[in-house]
């Protein structure tokens, strides 16, 4: 097969797999949220509801239809953006999500902008001098950061920076985007707490990818040709590690999701993850469904990007 065709074929296959996975996830989410004990209509109207009122609500929520029809109806709604009504506060789910999405994107964007350069830089520096003191220290430090729970870092940050030093507020009731100072005051702690793990992940994976390349015989050959320093990194290490590094970046950024769930809870940050956790606590199923699908979509996109980056790392395909 010609390389260009191979690339297209791979992309198609990967996208098809992602779409299939999303479909399977939607089925699983729907099934899981439909097998919950009790009746949604009953839950909404409470115990004093009359049978007539219950029946009317069931009909309006299409609960009288078979599950397969309801699934298709629901799936259609997901695709067209009509994701139903919240059972708890009776507002359209899309509206709830719409009000929280910018905050979450802001948090994720700020964390990405903060983590990627620092993680890459640390990774490259420690790969350049393996077994140096710097490398050993960062290695143990990042191992520890990756190993500890997100809420440990979050609570520690609150204790040190908000309570003892009083630099930042401990709670973020809404991110203040109106002033630069307000923005930094409200976003710094959540972003910092979220960043610890991401930076550590990016750094470790970048270091591993670079070290793998630096061990190759062509790097030794380049040294024996008199090639050293920046030229070695620029022409030998980086081009061949680019794919694995991009892969590492995408994988690390997918940790934003899990991290956000914890961090938004600690700081009471009005983002999507907090919305989801609250929805699970109140068993607000339409909201759980919509948030879950949104998170899975984001995760799948990052995962697919990671795989594509990994494939592009193959010089045989990239070269042509």
């Amino acid at each position: 097969m010609r390389p260009a065709l191979a690339v297209t074929g791979f992309l198609l296959k990967r996208l098809l797999f992602a779409a299939g996975t999303l479909l399977a996830v939607s089925l699983a989410v729907f099934a899981a949220t439909e097998i919950l004990p009790g009746d949604v209509a009953g839950a909404v109207l409470g115990q004093s509801a009359t049978p007539e009122a219950l029946a009317a609500l069931r009909a309006s929520m299409h609960l009288d239809l078979p599950a397969s029809v309801r699934y298709l109806h629901w799936l259609g709604g997901m695709v067209t953006g009509d994701v139903g009504h919240s059972l708890v506060n009776n507002r359209p789910v899309s509206e709830l999500i719409g009000s929280r999405l910018p905050n979450s994107l802001l948090l994720a964007g700020a964390a990405t902008a903060f983590c990627v350069p620092i993680g890459l830089l640390l990774g490259i520096c420690s790969a350049m001098r393996p077994t140096s003191v710097f490398d050993r220290v960062t290695s143990v430090a990042t191992l520890s950061i990756v190993a500890v729970p997100e809420f440990f870092i979050g609570t520690l940050a609150v204790l040190v920076f908000a309570v003892n030093l009083r630099w930042f507020p401990a709670l973020t009731l809404s991110p203040r985007i109106d002033s630069v100072e307000g923005f930094f005051r409200s976003m710094t702690l959540p972003v910092l707490s979220l960043s610890g793990i991401i930076i550590a992940q990016i750094m470790r994976m970048t270091r591993a990818a670079l070290l793998d390349v630096l061990r190759r015989p062509y790097v030794e050959m380049a040294r024996l040709k008199g090639v050293v320093g920046a030229r070695l990194v620029l022409f030998y290490a980086l081009p061949n590690a680019l794919g694995p590094i991009a892969n590492a970046l995408a994988l690390s950024l997918s940790h934003l999701l899990g991290g956000a769930i914890i961090i938004e809870t600690i700081f009471n940050f009005p983002g999507l993850a907090k919305l989801l956790v609250d929805a699970v606590s109140t068993r607000d199923m339409p909201l759980v469904q919509a948030c879950t699908m949104l998170f899975c979509l984001a995760y799948l996109i990052l995962g697919t990007l990671a795989d594509i980056a990994g494939m592009l790392a193959n010089p045989r395909l990239r070269a042509s």
Binding site: Y218, M221, P239, R316, A319
Partner: peptide
């Protein structure tokens, strides 16, 4: 001093 290694295939940078 120049060096000619056993495996040229492994000693050329594959991406250049």
């Amino acid at each position: 001093v120049a060096y000619v290694p056993q495996s040229a295939a492994a000693s050329f940078n594959p991406s250049r």
